[in-house]
Design a protein around this nucleic acid. Sequence first.
DNA 1: GTTCCGCATGAATCGATAG
DNA 2: ACTATCGATTCATGCGGAA
Lengths: 285, 285
Amino acid sequence: MFENGGARWRNVLLNGDCREILQGVADETVNLIVTSPPYADSRKNTYGGIHPDAYVAWFLPIAAQLWRVLRSDGTFVLNIKEKVVDGERHPYVLELILALRRQGWLWTEEYIWHKKNCAPGKWPNRFRDSWERCLQFNKQKQFKMFQEAVMVPTGDWAKSRLKNLSETDQRRDNSRVGSGFGKNVSNWMGRDMAYPTNVLHLATECGNKSHSAAFPRELPSWFIKLFSEQGDLVLDPFAGSGTTCIAARLLGRDYLGIEIKDEYFQLAQANLQDAAAIPVQRTLL
Amino acid sequence: MFENGGARWRNVLLNGDCREILQGVADETVNLIVTSPPYADSRKNTYGGIHPDAYVAWFLPIAAQLWRVLRSDGTFVLNIKEKVVDGERHPYVLELILALRRQGWLWTEEYIWHKKNCAPGKWPNRFRDSWERCLQFNKQKQFKMFQEAVMVPTGDWAKSRLKNLSETDQRRDNSRVGSGFGKNVSNWMGRDMAYPTNVLHLATECGNKSHSAAFPRELPSWFIKLFSEQGDLVLDPFAGSGTTCIAARLLGRDYLGIEIKDEYFQLAQANLQDAAAIPVQRTLL
DNA sequence: GTTCCGCATGAATCGATAG
DNA sequence: ACTATCGATTCATGCGGAA
């Protein structure tokens, strides 16, 4: 495995069952895993239509492989949401979290993806579901995290603009440093930028894609910027239409995508080729 | 129990341990429970400071009483959020949900309270926590729900978040508003109202001199309007500063509040008296 | 009366220090 | 080794005073 220093396993999309393919990946080679596995009872023809009651048992062996290939300072981000079964939320996601903890994973955080535009619909006993879980798991308490890479503009523009007087003084100071380049970047950013919270407010990707399970590229992009550096390897064992892989490539990371279903695999390959035309974004990290 | 047709148990705030007081409440008399119990290990100086590992065992007997006093078509809304212990999210809330299901409760839905203004702070391994769970439990699949009572004007909604909604989505929503369910009500509402989703975007109440209520009145108000009618009985076994009781009274519902801590009890009584000066809001339901 | 700014205030968490 | 306490960090909000 990993002939040519692992080159075979970088920037490729593989067609097959991740339960088998992952066995070929060497230990501790992946920096970040971002994936959205098939939800229970959906995509019946691919992974056999996992029943909610069997979901944990199905996922655990895969998670064991993920543990093996992930570097000790790496992160595993799992995008998932439980279905409604017989009028109530099925507990398989809760049970999965508990099972993953027993497997050794640390449940570091639960991010919320708040979907700006969620699917329309009306039911007598519930409203439209406009959020999903993005569960963060780690192998140890210390892991790579680059908070500056995902800073957002401060909420109130008026406030910061009205403080221009005090800011200009500081900018003069900065202009001296400006020739020095680089060192004060984070300080300079800090003026107008603030750290985000654990709620991501993103729109779903609607329409043009033929892939129905809309996963906006911003979502994996956010976690890739936050938990990896340029040149790192990002794994998605359920690549789908390739959104995570594309996001990784555009951010200058290497990717490894695995997709079992031919149709999605072809689509992901085409999407990745289109993305290859887009230049890599040079971010801070 | 319930002398004078239960009058003794309506529109009162009781000072004591809900584990004891609830035993005096008759079976199936409460229409809605909205509560925010002390979080594990927080409020140490006020409540016992329940250790996370002991939280489920502490809560289950109370939940059994809640089951008994709740009407079969009633709803139990539990506002809670797990804290970080030793660098990871503690699983006691997940375990509580599973335990409540074993007790017979249906876990109908998980609403998200997205706090506009969350506590400050910066840590190397996580961002600020800006959301809490509002877990909805029921005794049976059929329960009271009045969706029209919490509809939101599309105008304001569009103003604040318009950009990312496609026009077709909005049209779809609007068309659903007029169709079916509610007869006169929906006609009167017209086309400028839309149903909310399962994410509530509210600010915490801070800067209030008299008390530190982390719980904005809008939060219980929303659930009270959604899951009860005028004249119904709303129970809060952890009344705190009385926010749920006040919300219930202002909406024309009866309340029953229980608070163990003298200090909070006095405060809640004072707050309720202030609220008595405010006229009852005559809403649709 | 308005509008605008200043300031205190959180259901927090981490790492270091002390017993 | 294990627990207890303390300081540092940070931002949306709403009130009160000021222009």
